[in-house]
């Protein structure tokens, strides 16, 4: 099955894959401080969902958010510069991995508090539509977030006020080390049903399927339908966070990880393209990322004297902390 633009979809998953691999190298090299939550293995979800959104639509992401930001169209070079804490980054080095945002392409931010972003996106979409803009939104969250009251409260608000938000659950089987079965009473789809929201399960490893399911939901939402939930079944190929590269936490059987890696979204989409097309995309992605790394590392670090810049949008200046 291929959709309207299989090459573009492949380019996106490949870009995210290689971006994350390069980012991990930069973590190891000490250029990205604080580490990252790698999106490796889940690329098909962000790529598929964002391929079905329009440029003006809005998204919010998670702590594992690089894929969402890139798939929605942010510049990989400025994204990487952000991870390296440079003034040339998307957030001028103020946000880092977990807060990367690019309002210019509709990314209202990754978010470091699990379950918190769904309500933010619901409010944003509601306000834009009230102004007459034809936008919809997609908010990404993990399987861990479905146990947070604030996300379930957002389901209720969105359903009650019929705000066209796609709630995209990236079910990768674990919240850090906690398996879904140990954490979720009932089902994820059942939570949507409780609020009268349609829910669709999709193979998150297949970017085309994710795109198709999202496109159908978005079409219903644009035609006046309310919010929907998509549960994308996926798997995190790497660590919860790069700190796990140093500290082994024992919670996933190695055979399970090995088996899951066989269903690789980059390969699944890549196999749909003629070899030479695929090779050309790969080369293009490599060139983009080589340039991105150069750009990121060439950017200046912010001046400590500017540490409180942007604290207040009103122009208020804060008292500093010195004696």
């Amino acid at each position: 099955m291929t959709g309207p633009d299989p090459v573009r979809l492949y380019r996106t998953v490949r870009l995210i894959r290689r971006f994350e691999e390069r980012a991990i190298e930069l973590v190891d090299a000490g250029e990205i401080v604080g580490g990252i939550h790698p999106y490796l293995g889940q690329e098909g979800v962000a790529a598929g969902v964002c391929a079905a959104l329009a440029a003006g639509d809005l998204v919010t992401g998670t702590h594992r958010g690089h894929g969402h930001v890139l798939a929605k169209g942010a510049d990989p070079a400025r994204m990487l510069a952000e991870l390296c804490g440079r003034v040339t980054g998307l957030n001028r080095g103020r946000g880092g991995s977990m807060h990367a945002a690019d309002f210019g392409v509709g990314v209202l931010g990754a978010n470091a508090i699990v379950g918190a972003a769904g309500a933010i996106l619901t409010g944003a979409v509601w306000a834009r539509r009230r102004r007459g803009d034809d936008v919809v939104g997609a908010t990404f969250f993990g399987d861990g977030a479905v146990n947070e009251g604030m996300l379930l409260e957002a389901f209720n608000l969105a359903a009650l006020w019929r705000v066209p938000v796609l709630f995209v659950c990236e079910n990768n089987g674990y919240a850090t080390t906690m398996p879904v079965e140990g954490a979720v009473a009932g089902t994820i789809a059942g939570r949507a049903a409780a609020f009268g929201m349609p829910a669709t399960a999709v193979d998150g490893q297949d970017p085309e399927q994710v795109r198709a399911v999202t496109a159908a939901a978005v079409a219903r939402m644009r035609a006046g339908g309310g919010p929907e939930l998509v549960e994308a079944r996926t798997y995190r190929f790497d660590a919860h966070h790069t700190f796990e590269h140093r500290v082994r936490l024992d919670y996933r059987p190695p055979e399970e990880v090995a088996a899951a890696r066989l269903r690789d979204p980059v390969l699944i989409q890549g196999d749909r393209l003629p070899a030479e097309v695929r090779a050309a995309v790969d080369a293009e992605v490599e060139a983009t990322l080589t340039a991105a790394v150069d750009f990121a590392l060439a950017g200046p670090a912010p001046d400590p004297a500017t540490a409180l810049d942007h604290l207040y949008a009103s122009g208020l200046t804060a008292r500093t902390g010195g004696g």
């Binding site: 804490g85 540490a307 604290l311």
Partner: peptide, 27 residues
């Protein structure tokens, strides 16, 4: 005298900014 974080502190990501917002030995 007191040495503190600033009013309304939000710690920026970049390490040099993160440090600048916390009370330091020089201060």
């Amino acid at each position: 005298r007191r040495v503190t974080r600033p009013d309304g502190a939000v710690l920026p990501f970049a390490p040099a900014l993160d440090r600048a917002v916390q009370p330091g030995r020089d201060q």
